[in-house]
Nucleic acid binder design. Structure first.
Length: 213
DNA sequence: AAACGGATGGGCT
DNA sequence: GCCCATCCGTTTG
């Protein structure tokens, strides 16, 4: 039985207003839900990276430009950019208005819309669907999401971890699958050269869905 | 298992 | 002209 729409609830309005590192950690375990004409796809966030205003690897570290404008806007909006001429990476904007910070979403555990994800990605292997920032953008079909989109509404929503379907035989999910229970691992960020030593990558310990060990 | 190169285009010195 | 917050297929050990 397909999950009902009501099973996804956006995170509270103030969720994104915490510090960028705190949001990067809090996003682990949350659900990213993409609603498109083709159907709904969703995945559990298992890997993130924080980009700070005084951090040389951050697109916003040298001031506001046409490209990074959304990073200086209010928290809880989207910032998506083109990388290597072929892929797009999706970020959750954080920090107060006027401060350019964001959290890169690096990997998801697919939880809904496998077939649609597989078709968009051109692969069937579940582990290959969302295990990287470029991959998950393709799988969710969000490459053309306008910068500054409100992430508490369709077409792209950050939702609370979903309670399992209610009913006879429905299995109750305890803390086993939550971020807190799994534990959060901290490492340096992937694919950058500037300020590469900073411990700003976060992932759910033991998750087989992350982009890299 | 790890290393490497090609694809491909915008942003910035 | 060089640098990318990447991915994938191929080569090498």
């Amino acid at each position: 039985m397909a999950p009902r729409k009501s099973s996804y609830r956006p995170v509270p309005a103030g969720f994104f207003s915490a510090g960028t590192v705190a949001v990067a950690r809090a996003l682990l375990g949350k659900i990213l839900v993409s609603q498109s004409p083709e159907g709904r796809t969703a995945g559990r966030i298992v890997e993130t990276e924080a980009y700070l205003c005084d951090d040389a690897a951050c697109h916003a570290s040298r001031g506001e430009t046409k490209r990074n404008r959304a990073m200086f806007g209010p928290a809880g909006r989207s910032y998506t950019y083109l990388i290597y001429g072929m892929y797009r990476c999706f970020n959750v904007v954080t920090g107060p208005k006027g401060v350019g910070e964001a959290v890169l979403i690096r990997a998801l555990e697919p939880i809904e819309g496998f077939d649609l994800m597989a078709m968009r990605r051109g692969v069937a292997e579940p582990k290959a669907l969302c295990s990287g920032p470029g991959k998950l953008v393709i799988a969710l079909g969000i490459a053309d999401l306008p910068d500054g989109s409100d992430l508490r509404k369709v077409p792209l929503m950050v939702a609370e971890e979903r309670a399992e379907a209610v009913g006879p035989g429905a299995k109750v999910r305890g803390g086993a699958g939550t971020a807190a229970a799994a534990g959060i691992k901290v490492t340096t960020r992937i694919g950058i050269s500037k300020d590469a030593h900073l411990p700003l990558r976060f992932y759910l310990e033991g998750s087989p869905w992350i982009s890299r060990k």
